[in-house]
Amino acid sequence: MKKNLLMILFIFMFLLGFWMAMSPAEANPWEEVQEPYLGVEQSIGSYANGCLSGGEALPLKGEGYQVIRPSRNRYYGHPNMIAYLSKLAKKTKGFGLDDLMIADISMPRGGNFTKGHSSHQTGLDADIWLSFAPEPLTKDSLESPTAVSMVDLQNYALKRDNWMKEHAILFQVAASEPEVARIFVHPVIKETLCEMAWEDRNWLRKVRPWWGHHYHMHVRLQCPEGSLNCISQNAPPAGDGCGAELISWRPKPVDETKSVVTTTKKKRVKIKPGQCEVVLTQ
């Protein structure tokens, strides 16, 4: 009798585990929404904890650019971002650059992604790949483009075979627009730009070093006028950012005599601004 009960319990636990493993993960409601919220155009909350009202879709192809991975439905932004990207692409085309490859901006109503980004929530962030498209991409190429890294990550050095003068033009034009708050790039790319001779170096202040951005640049716009609940970042430090601050990003020599202690950080639950509930559900 006891053996039978144990066998029944074992089968029950096995089936329960199998059912839990096969059950779909809890859906992210922000990713389920397919259309923008038709309210006043506003970026609400912070770049990494907010939402978007009155967002617009960037046309999938325009003068000087192509939107890649369109099936993700991440080509929505605040109207300021859509205008900025269109303006940037026209300018870079005027300088002789091939089409820009525009990647993730935001979802139709902003909000958080299940994976891939912690920011891009208010329609004010956009990724632009450092690959250019010399001709219209095929449907397959748009969905599965090849990323070209500008950095030898192991040796913390620029891949000079991949870097072109057009990249420097792209960064200068992109960062010189007044609505830009920051442009995140790998520290090696920032160092490369710092080493170049520029008549005006003011725009370099906005180019900020950040890990991971070795095959794309991440453009972040300032909070728009009228977005009273938009939370901006502090302005970057004064200067061009090419001195000691940038040097501090370089890898430190490994001291093998020191033991490394790892700690697990507790994930903080972020509560979105109250207006985001309206944006999501109405």
Rank of each mutant, 00 (worst) to 15 (best):
K3D: 15
L5N: 11
L5P: 00
L6P: 01
L6S: 10
L6K: 09
M7V: 14
F10V: 14
I11H: 09
F14W: 14
L15F: 10
G17L: 13
F18G: 06
F18C: 08
M22Q: 10
M22H: 11
S23A: 10
E26K: 11
E26D: 04
N28D: 03
N28H: 09
E31Q: 09
E31R: 11
E32L: 13
E32D: 12
Q34K: 11
P36D: 06
G39I: 00
V40F: 12
V40A: 05
S43Q: 07
I44S: 03
Y47S: 10
G50D: 07
C51V: 07
L58A: 10
P59C: 03
L60T: 02
K61N: 06
G62Q: 05
G62S: 10
E63V: 04
S71W: 07
S71D: 13
S71G: 08
R74F: 15
Y76K: 07
G77I: 05
G77M: 08
N80Y: 14
M81C: 04
M81I: 05
I82F: 12
I82R: 02
L85S: 10
G94A: 01
G96H: 03
L97F: 01
D98R: 00
L100Q: 00
M101F: 09
I102G: 03
P108Y: 09
R109P: 04
N112L: 08
N112K: 15
F113C: 00
K115A: 11
K115S: 14
K115L: 09
G116H: 07
G116I: 08
H117E: 12
H120W: 10
T122E: 12
D127I: 02
D127R: 05
I128V: 11
L130S: 06
A133F: 06
P134G: 01
E135D: 01
P136T: 01
D140C: 02
S144F: 15
S144P: 00
P145D: 02
P145M: 01
P145K: 01
T146M: 11
T146D: 08
S149T: 06
D152Y: 03
Q154P: 01
Y156I: 04
A157W: 08
R160P: 01
D161P: 00
W163L: 06
F171I: 06
A174L: 07
S176T: 04
P178C: 06
E179I: 13
R182L: 10
I183K: 02
F184H: 14
H186Q: 05
H186I: 00
P187S: 04
V188E: 02
C194K: 09
M196H: 04
M196S: 05
E199R: 00
E199P: 08
R201F: 05
L204K: 02
V207P: 00
R208W: 15
P209G: 05
W210H: 15
W210E: 13
W211L: 14
W211N: 05
H213C: 06
R220G: 09
C223K: 12
S227A: 12
L228H: 12
N229P: 08
N234C: 11
P236T: 14
D240M: 06
G241T: 13
G243C: 01
G243H: 05
A244C: 11
L246I: 05
L246G: 07
K252I: 07
P253H: 11
D255C: 02
S259F: 12
K265S: 12
K266N: 10
K267F: 13
K267G: 04
R268M: 12
V269K: 10
I271M: 12
P273F: 15
P273M: 14
G274Q: 15
Q275G: 09
V279Y: 00
Q282S: 10
